[in-house]
């Protein structure tokens, strides 16, 4: 019964044959640690996949391999049908189509908020300045920080910085957005303002891979939950099923620890 519902939901989210990100048989080691073990994961266009799991399970590493901030030892990753190239011009072009939001925001500290959102457009897309500024301002407006455009990142709260970081990534018109624990460095009262922006993005049909500990977000925004532990994908399911009726003992154990205090 449960298997049927997974298939159906996946079909609802995206028609078969429109796979945007495909990881097949991916392996990676950090020294002796086998951090990614035979990872197979397919993300369809328009799909929101939330990756959860205990610390050290490899979920951030998985996220970072998708735009090759981490290299892999074996296996293959393709984005929109193209395999990830070696470091160089090709890879840079591919990265410009993959938005990334980091746990620690990583806004360019010596540039204003507006300059942060314009930089990629000007230097990678070669957009002209007026158009870049207009787009940057409208994106800043969309994430609710339009009034902060001329400030420096250090003058903003964490939640504001993370929303600027989302705007910076969106300015490239990415095919897919990667979120690497986007709310983990935020004070509790700022988490929701970031999650709301992400919810809206998901509703607008953005393809998203989200590594997070926010189970509420996973429940409400995800098409699919991927549960990782010890470098392996242990379980994949639609959120309702995963949270109410996890199949694996590892997932049951994990959920029992985070959901019931």
């Amino acid at each position: 019964m449960s298997g049927v519902s997974v298939t159906k939901a996946a079909e609802d989210a995206a028609p078969a044959g429109d796979d945007l990100v495909v990881l097949s048989n991916v392996n990676k080691h950090f020294g002796a640690l086998h951090v990614l073990q035979d990872i197979d994961l397919t993300i369809a266009r328009g799909e929101v996949v939330v990756v959860i799991g205990p610390s050290g399970s490899g979920k951030s590493t998985l996220c970072r391999t998708i735009n090759r901030l981490e290299t892999i030892d074996s296996g293959a990753i393709t984005i929109d049908g193209k395999p990830l190239p070696q470091e160089g011009k090709e890879l840079a072009r591919l990265r410009s189509d993959v938005g990334m939001v980091f746990q620690s925001f990583n806004l360019f500290a010596h540039k204003t908020v507006l300059e942060n959102v314009m930089l990629g457009q000007l230097k990678v897309r070669r957009t002209d300045k007026a158009a870049a500024e207009q787009k940057a301002r409208s994106l800043l407006d969309r994430v609710g920080v339009a009034t902060q455009a001329d400030k420096y990142p250090s003058q903003l709260s964490g939640g504001q910085q993370q929303r600027v970081a989302i705007a910076r990534a969106l300015a490239m018109d990415p095919k897919v957005m990667l979120f690497d624990e986007p709310t983990s460095a935020l004070d509790p009262e700022m988490i929701n303002e970031v999650l709301e922006v992400m919810q809206q993005l998901a509703r607008d049909g953005m393809t998203m891979v989200v590594v997070t500990h926010e189970m509420g977000f996973a429940r409400s925004a995800a098409n699919r939950v991927v549960f990782m532990a010890d470098g392996k994908i242990v379980e994949e399911a639609v959120p309702d099923q995963f949270f109410s009726n996890p199949r694996s003992d590892r997932a049951k154990d994990f959920l029992s620890k985070i959901l019931h205090h």
Binding site: N67, L69, K89, A92, R93, L94, R95, S96, D97, V98, G99, M100, F102, S104, F105, N106, L107, F108, A109, L119, G120, K123, V124, A165, R168, A169, M172
Partner: peptide
Amino acid sequence: VPAGQAEAARALGLS
């Protein structure tokens, strides 16, 4: 300069 600055810049597609 924190490593994250370069990572964010690379992620945007800068050479």
